[in-house]
């Protein structure tokens, strides 16, 4: 089976595209890092790809709020292409800055509502933070990510604006009821990872940013669009993990992603 082409758009300030490409490749995909300008000129088309991965970084330096500027560009320049990608059920994954973009663009948890009721904002501690966390894939709605449902993943977070906040507690309940929580921060421990681990229950640093209901990632109701703040692409090789349990690789996320793109 030939490797499905995976589009990894690069905007000014994108920086975890290299690791995202490595993870996609290890999962059997054919990663293609393409600058937004090339997409805009039409040199490369969204439609020629089986899936889209928006990587981490600081697009436009996080000016005017993380992800907001790129979200605006995606909507104004690529609104139709994105809609077609989603309508075709192609997997769309956003990591860290890519997740911020998808939320600010109204694609997560979606559908686009006006005004938006979910956002990613400054960490509760008011600063950028880099540390390893433990996640559980918690997706409740049918999704390409369901292939990895229940997986426990250890990987780093590295962000300053990763706190999920909602306009109203009702919104949290709705997200939970519809099974749109894709990833949840879990309590870590030196012991082997095993389900059931307890959710972090808001406790720092297991939940590093104060996200409501320990939400680390979201998906949309049709299950094609998924995003998360932590970086499973930084734990796809065994030597990448620090001391602790000898498991919890992030590769299952990318295997599910590439698998659905075939």
């Amino acid at each position: 089976m030939s490797a499905p082409p995976i589009l990894i758009p690069h905007a000014s300030g994108t920086n975890r595209d290299g690791e995202a490409a490595q993870a996609v490749e290890l999962a059997g995909g054919d990663p293609r890092i393409v600058h937004i300008n090339e997409l805009r000129r039409g040199d490369v088309a969204f439609a020629d790809h089986a899936a889209v991965l928006l990587p981490g970084g600081f697009s436009y330096g996080d000016a005017l709020g993380a992800g907001g500027r790129l979200a605006l560009e995606l909507r104004t320049w690529f609104g139709e292409e994105l809609a077609a990608t989603v309508a075709a059920g192609k997997p769309l994954l956003g990591i860290c800055n890519g997740f911020q973009v998808l939320v600010k663009a109204g694609l997560l948890p979606g559908p686009m509502s006006a005004p938006r009721e979910v956002t990613l904002t400054e960490n509760a501690r008011g600063r950028f933070e880099c540390r390893w966390v433990t996640l559980r894939v918690d997706v409740g709605t049918p999704s390409w990510l369901s292939a990895a449902h229940g997986a426990l993943i250890r990987c780093p977070v590295a962000h300053g604006e990763g706190r999920i906040a909602v306009a109203d507690p009702r919104v949290t309940q709705e997200i939970e009821d519809r099974g749109l929580v894709a990833f949840r921060y879990m309590h870590t421990g030196a012991a082997p990872l095993e389900d059931p681990l307890k959710p972090a229950d808001g406790a720092y640093p297991a939940n590093p940013n104060g996200s409501v209901n320990d939400i680390a990632g979201l998906c949309d109701a049709p299950g094609a669009v998924v995003g998360l703040m932590p970086h499973p692409e930084d734990h796809v090789l065994s030597w990448q993990r620090p001391s602790g349990p000898e498991e919890g690789a992030g590769l299952p996320v990318f295997e599910a992603f590439v698998g659905a793109a075939r």
Binding site: G18, G56, E129, A158
Partner: peptide
Amino acid sequence: RRYDHEVRGGTIVR
């Protein structure tokens, strides 16, 4: 911890 010491996925001894 205010510095990203993980980006580029190559940090072995942190």
